[in-house]
Design a protein around this nucleic acid. Structure first.
Length: 599
RNA sequence: GCCGACGUAGCUCAAUCGGCAGAGCACCCGCCUUGUAAGCGGGCGGUUACGAGUUCGAUUCUCGUCGUCGGCUCCA
């Protein structure tokens, strides 16, 4: 038995639940046009075109009716029919007719993607409901547990996922084999909400957005700035060790540069509109690469210098559409852990895998385990539009990346039509707390732009050669990385990243002097520390420190002050009483300098 | 950008049918002198996102704008 989701009982339950939902919906709204309703991760959805507005409050009655239908223990019966018979069955259903046409003529699947073989056309029937469907389904509705599914939300979705098409109404549901699994899933969603970076970011005073500043333009508060600075220090250290050189470039450039780079022809949609002064157009940069290319091209280069690795934590601006913004994970101003590696074709594999190695070091340091490396390929239809129009070079560089990853024994998946406009890339996909997928790090090959910039180096034989360029951002942008890390750690950052590492808590104001002196001593040693000298009870102060997820609390009363020691309470509740100051100092410094994940 | 929902104090949330806008926390001022997640009292804080409209009267109803959220599209 295969362990593919598509072959599982759960998949069939969800697929069947989608049909049951469609039946209930059609009973309530008989002139609804129904489209497709597949299983997805954790559940299913079905897309409808309603003739009247259907809102979230309506889900309850639909769900109730679904339970009645399920209780009827109806059989799911498959029938293979001809296209013409199918047209007869669905004569009043325009979307189904379009699907039938796709299946028959173009060999298109339900999403509009081409199929290799012409599929058979089948319908599934249960109770009084018939759907065009290739299955599979459960045998009877008896297998759908009425206490293990729930309708979740209502949303808009384009027919066939194309924004040029009509917007349909999508109803999402979740379904499981057993009621307990549903309960666990709902509980998990609640937990996820608690670690949502938008909530924690505000609570922990890391960042915020202001209406007058603008959507997608985060303001970093002191706590967030510490985290960003620490990440930057980490990157600089790692990149220095890996032979990178640092550069700095302006945030603004003339139109000419982005015409040459190809950003204006291929990327203008994501760029802020130009500002014009004295008849010259200037653009805010959406990427740093064109400037780095200029630095590479500033003087003749020899093969002896290669690879040249230029790094910059560059600030870029991209005009993301308003509905696409999402907390820190999708913003309009961002600081990228950017670098461009210029190398020869022979050097490509080791350079590319060097970057992959860097990723892995970072992921190990942060304890990031749930991620997928994705080889993002071009899409044939996008050549000349989304992608540089040179299919031969696309295929060649895609092969180079594939070979490098395979040789390096790094598992990856391949996805078409996800490349950058200038070349294929390895994207590292991660998931936000609420389950949304994002590209965190990226490692891209550029076979097109160096030529446009007339970049070259002189090889051993005295001939001019065009270098390859690798664009890479293993630590992503500060925005997405920190958004991700907030959720990854649920706000409880390791000591080296924690905005406040130690909080000194005197029990009575008789220890305020000792507390202040301790804090000064720690601060002197480079530790981020504060002393809570307020008038509250010690209990309230501890609570305050816990809520801010400060890793170490030093509780000091008359005894500690007299003995010149500290009582250490850690964020996880663990206590070590009467610790000599020097011992605590050594502990903190060790955790910081090794970037330990332990307290 | 598109579909839908939402927007009340710094934060979390109340306010019946359209009838004087409220609580807790935070903040400030006192009192208490405290042993590992909230001591007590008082005070400050609002153009109910913004702009129109309906009404004797709008937080409440209607329209528009802005923003946020759930998705779609798109992406580091």
């Amino acid at each position: 038995m295969s362990d593919r989701y598509e072959d599982s009982l759960l998949y069939r339950i969800r697929h069947s639940a989608a049909h049951v939902m469609a039946q209930a919906v059609l009973e309530f709204y008989p002139d609804t046009k129904y489209t497709i309703g597949p299983p997805v991760e954790n559940g299913f959805y079905y897309d409808f075109e309603f003739s009247q507005p259907v809102v979230a409050e309506d889900l309850e009655k639909i769900e109730k009716r679904m339970r009645q239908i399920v209780a009827g223990q109806h059989k799911f019966e498959k029938k293979v029919i001809s296209a013409d018979e199918a047209r007869q069955v669905f004569k009043d259903q325009p979307y189904k007719l379009e699907l039938i046409d796709g299946l028959e003529k173009g060999g298109l699947d339900e999403y509009g993607n081409p199929l290799k073989e012409k599929p058979e056309i089948s319908i599934y029937q249960h109770d009084k409901f018939t759907d065009l469907c290739r299955g599979p389904h459960v045998d009877t509705t008896k297998q759908i547990n009425p206490s293990a599914f729930k309708l979740m939300s209502i949303a808009g979705a384009y027919w066939r996922g194309d924004e040029k098409n009509k917007m349909l109404t999508r109803i999402y549901g979740t379904a499981w084999e057993k009621p307990d699994e549903l309960k666990n899933y709902l509980q998990m969603l609640e937990e996820a909400k608690k670690r949502d970076h938008r909530k924690l970011g505000k609570e922990l005073e890391i960042f915020f957005f202001d209406d007058e500043v603008g959507p997608g333009l985060p303001l970093w508060m002191p706590n967030g700035t510490i985290i960003a600075d620490e990440l930057e220090n980490l990157a600089k250290e790692m990149e220095a060790n890996a032979g990178y050189q640092r550069v700095r470039t302006p945030n603004l450039t003339k139109e000419d540069l982005f015409l040459r780079s190809g950003h204006l022809p291929y990327y203008a949609e994501s760029m802020y509109p130009p500002m014009e002064l004295e008849g010259v157009k200037y653009y805010v940069k959406p990427m740093n690469c064109p400037m780095h290319h200029k630095i590479f091209g500033a003087r003749p280069r020899s093969y002896r210098e290669l690879p040249i690795r230029l790094a910059e934590y560059g600030t870029c601006y991209r005009y993301e559409k308003s509905g696409e913004l999402f907390g820190l994970m999708r913003v309009r101003s961002m600081q990228m852990n950017d670098a461009h590696i210029y190398c020869s074709e022979e050097q490509f594999e080791s350079e590319f895998m060097g970057v992959v190695g860097l990723y892995k070091k970072y992921f190990e340091l942060f304890g990031i385990e749930k991620y997928v490396m994705r080889l993002s390929l071009h899409g044939k239809a996008g050549l000349g539009k989304k992608y540089v129009d040179n299919e031969r070079l696309w295929i060649k560089t895609e092969d180079m990346v594939r070979r490098a990853m395979t040789n390096g024994n790094v598992p990856f998946v391949e996805v078409e039509d996800e490349a950058a406009f200038y070349g294929p890339k390895i994207d590292v996909q991660i998931w936000s707390a609420i389950g949304r997928e994002f590209t965190l790090a990226t490692n891209q090959v550029d076979f097109a732009v160096p030529e446009r910039f007339d970049l070259k180096f002189v090889n051993k034989d005295g001939q001019e050669e065009i270098p390859l360029c690798i664009h890479r951002a293993p630590l992503s942008t500060h925005e997405r990385m920190i958004g991700f890390l907030i959720e990854h750690y649920a706000g409880a950052f390791p000591v080296w990243l924690a905005p406040e590492q130690v909080r000194v808590i005197p029990i009575t104001d008789g220890q305020n002097d000792y507390a202040a002196q301790l804090a000064a001593q720690l601060r002197e040693a480079g530790v981020r520390v504060s002393a809570d000298l307020g008038a509250e009870r010690m209990n309230a102060k501890i609570r305050g420190a816990q809520l801010f997820k400060v890793p170490y609390m030093l509780v000091i009363g008359p005894n500690e002050a007299a003995a010149g020691v500290v009582s250490l309470r850690m964020r996880d509740g663990f206590q070590l009483n009467n610790m000599p100051v020097a011992e605590f100092m050594a502990r903190v410094q060790e955790k910081i300098s090794t970037r330990s994940s332990q307290l």
